[in-house]
Amino acid sequence: MTTAIPTSANKDLGTGRFRKNRGNSARSIGGIVAAIVIWELLSLSGAVNKNALPSPPSTFAALIKNFGGLSKSLFGTLEAWVIGMLIATIAGVVIGTLVGRSPVADAASETVVRMMRPLPSLALIPIAILVAGLGLKMTVGLVSFAAFWPIFINTRAGVRQVDNRFLESGSALGLKGLELLFRVILPAAAPLVAGGIQIAISIALIVTISVELVGGTGGLGQFVLLAQQANALSEMFAGIIVGGFIGWLLNVLFMNIVDRVLPWRTQGEIN
């Protein structure tokens, strides 16, 4: 009978098990409504200090009032995010592929990977500021550094774990070298690579906003920082909400792209 798909893919980061989320939109809207209701109740009841939690209406008012400033800040954040993600994705996939397909490099990189994986990139912000100073370059550098690891780790695992039967099929068809790489190894690794990119999307956003928050280098982070310094609580929350929303949106967009580009990702396992 057909054997179960080896779940070795799940050992590494991001199993590539994105849920089909189309039928879930009603539930996620329900979740958002519930969160807003709890928020409103908390701020009404006075259970949380009024100076720490603005009410939903005043936050939404601030959101609308600051639409222009928020859009501009969001654009700044996304600029660093996009450049950082591009660098991280290209570097992660290329280096991950080279390392994963070379037994020597693969073994040699094992320790580095084990060390880098749990390292919180946020802890590197002060060092990065010291080394590169404040600015887009430093932000992008730190973002791509942080986002590189999940993509590298998953690509390395993905190209290493390609089912031998796919490789034999490729050889039997006369594929070798680069042809085998591009037509068999990389497609077979693609779901795991996508899983790594998905993790990186959130990490990159967190790092971008954090750098802006610490360094005051523009973007949503600086917006929140300035609002906090001005004691404008509703504005601060508006900035935080925009950050959360954009993180959610980027994830959903990416999942939809993956569903379209790798249609066999889930279906392949049914057979």
Partner: peptide, 11 residues
Amino acid sequence: FQEYNKSLFPW
């Protein structure tokens, strides 16, 4: 090969 689901490329 015996295992057609691992010899045809699902992508």
